[in-house]
């Protein structure tokens, strides 16, 4: 474990500075109890609470791909992942989402929509590249057949019933149109 003990000299100097700064406020700090810190040991206070964005930043990773940045920060973090840059319709939706802060539904709900659009784009890209995705293998149905055949059968039956219902509704509308 790391040693959580801070430099006592620094502590004293900071306390003296603060006491002088707030000397005009009667009673300032008289009941302060540094040991009453519910964040310890999860967080080791460093007495740098008020210094803001002041650390020596690591070397910046070259930004050679499109990175969407939260508007709650002033810069791109020193490192970032380069997996799956935004592209296509889903990318456009993601760019829209990043106009809003992390506190807004306008940020998160479009991102969820973009994820669903992206799944369809993935299938289209597969087919364009001559690869028909094996949806059954991707969903792990082999394992389900091996360990839970009844559950798989139930899932297939429910899916088939839903597909049949949709088919009947569509064909009924077609027949209505014919009339």
């Amino acid at each position: 474990m790391e040693n959580p003990v801070k430099d006592p000299t620094a502590d004293l100097a900071q306390k003296t500075d603060l006491a002088q700064k707030y000397a005009h406020i009667k009673g300032w700090g008289i009941d302060a109890d540094p040991k009453n810190d519910p964040t310890y040991p999860i967080k080791h206070r460093t007495d740098a609470e008020q210094t803001g964005y002041s650390w020596e930043r690591p070397t910046q990773q070259p930004v050679d791909t499109e990175i969407l940045r939260s508007i709650e920060r002033p810069n791109i973090s020193a490192v970032f992942g380069t997996s799956s840059p935004p592209s296509g319709l889903s990318g456009a939706i993601r760019r829209y989402a990043f106009k809003y802060s992390e506190s807004e539904y306008g940020h998160w709900l479009p991102l969820i929509l973009a994820d669903r659009v992206n799944a369809v784009e993935g299938i289209i890209d597969d087919i364009k590249q001559g690869h028909i995705p094996n949806i059954f293998a991707e969903r792990g149905w082999k394992a389900q057949w091996q360990h839970n055949p009844k559950g798989l059968a139930r899932k297939v039956l429910i899916g088939a019933a839903a597909a049949l219902t949709v088919y009947m509704l569509v064909t009924r509308n077609d027949n209505d149109d014919d009339d």
Partner: peptide, 19 residues
Amino acid sequence: HFCRQGLYGNCHESNPQAT
């Protein structure tokens, strides 16, 4: 700031997409 406080799960220099 956060890593120096032992909050290694809350680093501010590893994720541009969310704070």
